[in-house]
Computed example of a mutant assay.
Amino acid sequence: MTRLLAIDTSSAWCSVALSLGDSAPQLRHELVSAGASQCLLPWIENLLAQANQQLSQLDAIAIGIGPGAFTGVRLGLAAVQGLAIATNLPVLPVASLDAIAAQLTKTPHFAKIKPTQFVIAVDARMGEIYWAKYEFNSSTSLPLRIGNIQLSKPEEIDLRNIQYLAGSAIKEFGERLFVNHSFPSEALDPEISISALGILELAQQMFKAGQQISVNQLEPLYVRNKVAFTTNEREIAFKKGTR
């Protein structure tokens, strides 16, 4: 029986899932904005208590390493570092877009369309998006990412040969995503967002493959080095927006 704790704080959601073998995982998933720092550890303690488990009895801790909100990513990693060091547990690092992709393939809407190639695109702030391409075969349990996660302007997304598009960038940027390619409404999912269940799904496969790492090797996946505009850049952007 594989026992895993999965955590994600890379978005406005605080999400924690606990899996104990074949039983359905327990999940706490709420929109908290900047309140994850106050919720995360109490939620973990509560889920463990409900399951009558100690953290040290688990096999590993899975964590969403980003890309995502800079502060949120750091919060999640710091929490996992403390928990893993205290219990000598290995960790399973999961990229946020990969977790969303894993969740997406389980949705009825996706299953009805049956796309073999799709893109996850999420709002990266500062007028940009994080996005990645995936392949999916119904005979396999998880989608396969094609290449690296990208950071670009919405207009620069590559949607060639893509049959389905999902993620928060659809609502945030609308037609800016569809400059060179259009999609029917049934091939879009603007509502899906990251959850610890997606982290958990990938982590379970990673653990089976022996891909857990020491907490000393844990690093965030930022993709973007710059996390905020300067005052001058904000003023320029404001002036452009008022023209």
Rank of each mutant, 00 (worst) to 15 (best):
R224N: 06
R234S: 11
E186Y: 13
I170E: 04
Y164L: 12
G167Y: 02
L221G: 00
G147M: 09
A187W: 02
L202C: 01
R145G: 04
N225I: 10
G210E: 06
E172K: 14
I146W: 04
A228T: 07
P220F: 12
F207I: 00
E172Q: 14
F183N: 08
N180H: 14
N225G: 12
E201D: 13
I192E: 01
A166T: 00
Q163G: 00
E191A: 13
Q205K: 14
P143R: 05
R224M: 01
P190F: 07
S182D: 14
I162N: 01
L144T: 07
S141N: 11
T231Q: 15
D158Y: 04
L188Q: 11
S195D: 04
N225Y: 03
L144Y: 05
L202N: 08
L202E: 00
Q205T: 09
A196M: 04
L218V: 06
E201L: 15
L200M: 14
Y222M: 10
L200T: 08
I162Q: 05
L159G: 05
E233M: 12
Q217T: 02
L151R: 10
A209M: 14
T230R: 03
R176K: 15
L200D: 01
Q211L: 15
P184E: 07
I162K: 01
S141V: 09
Q217P: 08
I149H: 04
T230H: 01
I146H: 07
G167I: 00
N225A: 13
H181T: 12
Q163C: 03
L165V: 13
A166N: 08
I146N: 07
S139K: 11
M206W: 06
N225W: 01
T231Y: 09
M206K: 15
L165I: 15
R224V: 02
E201V: 04
N232R: 11
F178Y: 10
Q205E: 12
I236Q: 14
E172G: 03
L165S: 07
A187I: 03
V227M: 15
N161F: 11
V215P: 08
M206I: 02
S141C: 06
S182V: 13
F173A: 05
V223K: 05
G210S: 05
S152W: 00
N225L: 14
L159M: 09
I192T: 02
E186P: 00
L159P: 07
T230P: 07
V179M: 09
Q150P: 03
M206S: 10
T231F: 12
K153P: 00
I146L: 15
T231A: 15
F207W: 15
E172D: 04
S193H: 12
D189I: 04
G174M: 02
Q212W: 06
I149S: 05
K226D: 10
F178D: 05
M206H: 13
F173C: 06
L202P: 03
S182H: 09
